[in-house]
Amino acid sequence: MESALEEVEFLARSPNRVEVLRLLAEDRHTRTELAEATGASQATLGRILTDFQERAWVRRAGSEYVATATGRLVASGFTDLLDIIETERELRDVVEYLPTHAMDFDLGHLADATVTFPSETRPDAPVKRVVDLIGDASEVAVFSHAFNERSLSAVHERVTAGAATFRGVFSEHAIDALADAPDLRALLEDLLAHDDAAVRVHGEGIPLAVTTADETVHLLLRDENGVLQASLDTDDDAVRSWANDTFDHYWRSAAPLDADELA
Results as ranks from 00 to 15, higher is better:
Val130Asp: 02
Leu110Ser: 03
Ala125Phe: 07
Met103Asp: 02
Glu139Pro: 05
His145Gln: 10
Thr100Val: 15
Gly135Ala: 14
Asp124Ser: 13
Asp132Gln: 13
Leu133Ile: 07
Leu107Ser: 04
Pro126Gln: 00
Val140Ser: 02
Val95Gly: 07
Tyr97Lys: 01
Pro118Arg: 02
Pro123Tyr: 12
Thr114Ala: 07
Ala111Ile: 04
Ala141Ser: 10
Arg92Phe: 13
Ala102Asn: 09
Lys128Thr: 07
Glu96Gly: 06
Ala146Gly: 11
Leu110Phe: 07
Pro118Gln: 06
His101Thr: 13
Met103Gln: 10
Asp136Val: 11
Met103Cys: 11
Thr114Pro: 00
Asp93Gly: 09
Ser119Gln: 05
Asp124Gln: 13
Val142Met: 03
Pro118Met: 14
Asp93Phe: 09
Arg89His: 15
Asp112Phe: 02
Phe105Arg: 04
Glu96Asp: 11
Thr121Ile: 10
Pro126Ile: 00
Glu120Asp: 11
Val95Ile: 15
His101Cys: 11
Thr116Ser: 03
Thr114Arg: 13
Val115Asn: 03
Val127Trp: 02
His145Glu: 08
Ala111Val: 02
Thr87Lys: 09
Asp112Glu: 12
Val115Arg: 04
Phe143Ala: 06
Asp106Leu: 14
Glu120Ala: 10
Phe105Thr: 11
Asp136Ile: 08
Pro118Ala: 08
Leu91Met: 12
Val142Leu: 13
Phe143Thr: 01
Leu91Asn: 07
Val127Glu: 05
Arg129Ala: 14
Val140Thr: 08
Ser138Ile: 00
Asn148Gly: 08
Asp93Cys: 08
Asp124Trp: 10
Leu98Ala: 07
Pro99Lys: 11
Leu133Pro: 00
Arg92Asp: 14
Arg89Asn: 06
Met103Tyr: 10
Val130Ala: 12
Phe105Ala: 07
Thr114Tyr: 01
Ser144His: 05
